[in-house]
Amino acid sequence: MLDKNPLDLDYQGVVEWVNKYKERERSLGHILDKPAPALLTTFYAQMVAEGSIVSNEWVRRACERHLKDLKRSEEDPDYPWVFDEEKAWRPIRFIEKKCHPTKGNFKHLVMQPWQHFIVGSMFGWVNKDTGMRRFRESLIFVGRKNGKRFAV
């Protein structure tokens, strides 16, 4: 069913196509129904870099930079930055536990892998000597109805 173009299907066919697509994405870990048990920043970057998650050039470049910087932080003793998973994970846990959606009957937010990448990148990269954040500001473009309120 997923090999068919949804634009060529009738309404019921499109509904079935979307449901099968969502189920496949859930099985691959691209869509989460409950909070992740671990930080997904690097996982998302790896999936985008290998092409498992479709993305535009800018997202792919950001993910490749994250992976390149991780490798450099391990190999180059003069590299000033390190990725601190605890510092990246802390705001994500806070958001998922304390923030509630504005609409719907939900008890908590479930951040998706792409949101983990954004928040994790902003808060996880720190100076290895001082512990100060590498990125103090971020500019994030997200289309309508794509979970902007959940990103920090």
Rank of each mutant, 00 (worst) to 15 (best):
F141N: 13
K98A: 15
S27I: 04
M111W: 01
E50M: 12
A36D: 05
P77K: 10
V18M: 10
A36E: 03
A38F: 12
L139I: 13
V126R: 04
I118D: 01
E64V: 14
R149C: 09
Y21E: 12
A88E: 01
L7F: 13
D33E: 15
G29Q: 01
A151G: 07
E85F: 03
K4Y: 10
D84K: 00
E75Y: 06
L32K: 09
P77E: 11
P113F: 01
A151Q: 13
V15Q: 11
P113T: 06
P37N: 08
L139V: 11
W81K: 01
E74A: 14
W89L: 04
W58Y: 13
D69M: 10
L9P: 01
K103E: 15
Y44K: 02
V110Y: 04
S138I: 15
L28A: 14
R61P: 03
D10G: 14
V110Q: 03
Q115W: 04
S55M: 07
E86G: 11
D8N: 14
P91Q: 06
V14L: 10
G104Q: 04
A36T: 07
Q12F: 13
I95C: 03
G29N: 04
R72G: 06
L28K: 15
W125F: 09
P35D: 00
K68V: 11
W81V: 04
P37Q: 08
N19I: 09
E50T: 14
L9D: 02
I31Y: 06
C99H: 00
A62D: 12
N146C: 13
